[in-house]
Simulated assay, not measured.
Amino acid sequence: MTTFTALSIRIDTNGGRRRMVTSRDVARVAGVSQSTVSYVMSGRRSISAATRRRVEAAIEELTYHPNAGARALASQRTQVIGLVVPFTPGADTTGLLPFIETIASCAREADHDVLLVTANEGSAGLKRLAGRSLCDAIVMMDIETDDARIPVAATLSVPVILIGVPADNAGLHCVDLDFPLAGRMAVDELAALGHRRVVLVGHPAEVVERGVNFVGRFERGATDAASAHGVALEVVAPVAPGRDGAEAAVEQVLAVGGERPGVVVPNSQALQPVLQVLMDRGLHPGRDLSLIALCTDAAAEAVTPAATNVSLEPRDVSRRAMQILFQLLDRGQEPPDELVQLIPPRLTRRRTTLPSP
């Protein structure tokens, strides 16, 4: 069964019963007609700035909230955005929070609520979400390279935007971090620091087997950069969660003797365990070897020692996705011609990489 969670909840803390404020009350206080109140709220007609200010002041004074059901019937809009985020095994649920927070914030700025769909029902969940007219548009996350939901999403009666880039987007708009560029940036940095061998510590088996789109895209960028620099690149995957998985991964990182390698950790959940295992073995990132993480700046600063990272830019990705989504909802606006938009990452040096030569 699909789990629907409303992210925007209004709570009346008055404790007593009171008459519901209506648009008629707003019109009376503002000294305008009820239809004018409706036009101000819907934006369907041009209203003078002075009249708009009077209506908005009355709305604020009366703390008026339009009835969602009545508004939906009148406009044939629900004012709701569906956000599909399957919490699958191996998923970085902490890393999802900046995306969810930003999407909810952008929705509220546009007077929309967000309906969070948290169960993984695949295409059936999408059909139910659109078929019941529960939302005006859908944002899909956790996109697989060969995602069976995409052909179905392309046929829905509501706009759909993807955060992620599948092999075939079926004509849907996609927004994501430029993961190939992120992979190249990490290897470029390690090569510049003098490392001739790079080891990429990968993801859990569940993520690898599902073919989540960004995993292969990041590795392709890293592979291209390693080839360009003449650097040896190895991928250690899958990596089990927790200390045991980090121990096994570090064993493989150190299996080849000689010069210490440059390490890339694109799985933020493995970052602290890998750092801890290295330090327990007397190897200090930033002194004995270099380590670069693919994660948010907040996650990079939260570990010990603070990690050099290539940023995920979740808020920039989410904001751009919502901008395009509202363009798709507004029939008066033309959506962007390009179907795939990639947000550039940033590399921030902290304590886990060797000093620049």
Rank of each mutant, 00 (worst) to 15 (best):
M20F: 01
L342E: 12
V199T: 03
M185F: 10
Q333G: 00
R18N: 12
R197T: 11
T296S: 15
V256D: 12
R351G: 02
S318L: 04
V239G: 01
G16N: 15
T51Q: 07
D12E: 14
S133I: 02
L97N: 09
V160C: 13
A68G: 05
H173D: 13
G171L: 06
P314H: 05
T296F: 00
M20A: 14
G257R: 11
V29W: 01
Y39V: 04
V340D: 05
T5F: 02
P159Y: 03
R243S: 14
R350Y: 09
A205F: 09
V158K: 10
Q333H: 05
I59F: 05
S46C: 08
D146V: 12
Y64A: 03
Q333T: 11
V256C: 06
A293Y: 14
E251P: 06
V310M: 02
L283V: 04
P357A: 12
T13D: 15
F4D: 02
T353R: 01
S8M: 09
L96S: 04
L275Y: 13
V152M: 03
R53A: 15
A240G: 10
E301D: 14
A321C: 12
S38C: 07
V253A: 03
R53I: 05
A104D: 12
V37R: 05
L126Q: 01
I163N: 03
P266R: 09
L116P: 01
P355T: 13
A270M: 05
P355Y: 10
S46T: 14
S75A: 14
V274Q: 10
L283M: 11
D12S: 09
R77Q: 13
S105L: 07
P86L: 04
T22S: 15
G282P: 11
Q327S: 15
S33F: 06
G216S: 01
T155P: 01
P285E: 06
H284D: 05
P98R: 00
T223W: 12
N309Q: 11
L156V: 11
A27P: 13
R17W: 06
R77N: 07
S75N: 13
R197N: 08
T308H: 06
N120E: 12
G90N: 07
R19I: 10
G332E: 12
D316N: 03
I103F: 01
P86F: 03
S290C: 11
L354E: 10
P345V: 04
E206I: 08
A91P: 00
T296L: 01
F87C: 06
E334R: 15
V26G: 08
S42V: 05
V26L: 07
R53V: 15
M141H: 10
Y39K: 10
V32G: 05
A225I: 01
E121Y: 04
D147Q: 14
G15N: 03
A119P: 02
I103G: 02
L354R: 13
F218N: 00
A307K: 02
V165Y: 04
T94G: 11
F218M: 08
P204N: 14
S356F: 13
R287D: 12
I100H: 00
S227D: 14
A104N: 12
E301W: 02
A298V: 14
L115M: 09
T63P: 01
S318Q: 00
